[in-house]
Every structure is written in structure tokens, then in C-alpha cells.
Simulated scan of single mutants.
Amino acid sequence: MSLTSTATETTKIITVHAARIDAAMAIQFKEDMRTQAADGPARVILDLSAVEFIDSSGLGAIVASMKQLGSGRKLDLAGLTPTVDKVFRLTRMDTVFNLFASLDDAIATEVG
């Protein structure tokens, strides 16, 4: 699993460089997210634009990553492909996360 991150004063952007977040990758994803998001601004944007498939394990790993951030920090999701977006909406996770069509949309929106 390859994740990279950049940070501004108000936001840390973590980009996923993998086509899948599934059972085979979920544990590594959580560890990599913990490392990438260990410190930094209160808002974290997870750029999922390269992810074409996510299963329940991947969804659970993203939820676990949100919980690892702790109180006072927020995880927003950006660049969801139609298939990934559908998984988040069918599981009602769109009520837990702010979903943005693109990374640019997420960056342009200040979320309180």
C-alpha cells in the first residue's frame, strides 16, 4: 500500500496510490494511515481518486483511520470513483464522512 501526504496550515492531504482497498490490504492501510496522519492539522483529506474498488474490510479500515485521528480532528474523503462512492452511500457512510467529487472540491470547501 502506497500513501503519500502533503500538508498546509489547515489541512493534511493523504493520497492513496492503489486501485484497491480490500481485505488483503486493510491492515497495511491502517498502519500506513496511522503513520501519515500521526500529526498535523485538524482536517485530513483522504484522496481516493486512484481507488477503483473497496470492500467491507477497506471500508472498516477507513473508519478505523478516522477513529485513530481522535477528537478534534476530521477525516474527509475526496475523489471517489462511482463504484467507491456507491459503497459509501449504500452503507450510509456518507452520513459519517464528508464526500467530495474531487480533491479540488474538498480543498476549496472549508469544513467546520
Rank of each mutant, 00 (worst) to 15 (best):
Arg89Ala: 07
Met33Trp: 15
Met1Trp: 05
Ser56Met: 06
Pro82Ile: 11
Ala26Asp: 03
Ser102Asn: 05
Val44Trp: 07
Phe53Gln: 11
Ala24Arg: 11
Gln28Arg: 13
Leu48Cys: 05
Asp76Arg: 09
Arg20Ser: 14
Met33Tyr: 13
Gln28Asn: 12
Thr95Ala: 07
Ile62Asp: 07
Ala24Val: 08
Gly79Lys: 01
Thr95Trp: 00
Asp32Gly: 12
Leu69Lys: 12
Lys12Val: 06
Lys12Leu: 12
Arg73Leu: 04
Glu9Tyr: 02
Ala78Pro: 03
Leu99Trp: 04
Lys74Asp: 07
Glu31Thr: 13
Thr83Tyr: 06
Glu52His: 03
Asp47Ala: 10
Arg20Lys: 15
Ala101Gln: 13
Val63Trp: 01
Leu75Phe: 03
Lys86Ser: 11
Ala64Pro: 11
Leu99Ala: 09
Gly60Phe: 01
Ile54Phe: 02
Gln68Arg: 11
Thr11Gly: 09
Leu48Trp: 01
Thr35Leu: 13
Thr35Gly: 01
Gly70Ile: 06
Ala108Met: 00
Glu9Phe: 07
Gly112Cys: 05
Arg34Asp: 12
Leu69Gln: 12
Val111Cys: 09
Ser5Cys: 05
Arg20Asp: 15
Lys86Asn: 12
Gln68Thr: 11
Gly40Glu: 08
Met25His: 03
Ser5Gln: 10
Met93Glu: 00
Thr8Cys: 02
Val44Asn: 07
Ala64Leu: 14
Val44Met: 10
Thr4Gln: 13
Leu103Asp: 08
Thr6Asp: 11
Ile45Cys: 02
Phe100Glu: 01
Val44Arg: 07
Gly60Glu: 02
Met33Lys: 04
Asp32Ser: 15
Ala64Val: 12
Leu75Ser: 00
Ile62Pro: 06
Phe88Asn: 01
Ser2Asn: 13
Ile21Phe: 10
Ile45Lys: 04
Leu48Val: 03
Thr10Trp: 05
Ala23Thr: 13
Ala38Thr: 09
Leu59Ala: 00
Phe29Gly: 10
Asp105Phe: 03
Ser5Asp: 02
Thr95Asp: 10
Thr6Phe: 01
Arg92His: 14
Val51Thr: 12
Ser49Gly: 06
Pro41His: 06
Ile62Val: 15
Ser71Pro: 08
Gly79Cys: 02
Asp22Glu: 14
Val44Lys: 08
Arg92Thr: 08
Glu110Trp: 07
Glu110Thr: 15
Glu9Cys: 02
Ser71Trp: 00
Val44Thr: 13
Ala42Arg: 13
Ala78Asn: 03
Ala50Phe: 08
Thr10Val: 00
Leu77Phe: 04
Asp22Tyr: 04
Leu59Val: 01
Phe100Thr: 10
Val111Asn: 10
Ser71Asn: 12
Glu31Tyr: 06
Ile21Lys: 04
Ser56Leu: 07
Ala108Cys: 06
Leu59Asp: 00
Ala101Tyr: 00
Ser56Thr: 12
Met66Gly: 07
Ile107Arg: 14
Ala42Gln: 15
Val84Cys: 06
Arg43Tyr: 03
Thr109Lys: 10
Ala61Leu: 08
Glu31Ser: 14
Met25Glu: 09
Arg89His: 08
Glu31Asp: 15
Ala19Asp: 14
Gly79Ser: 06
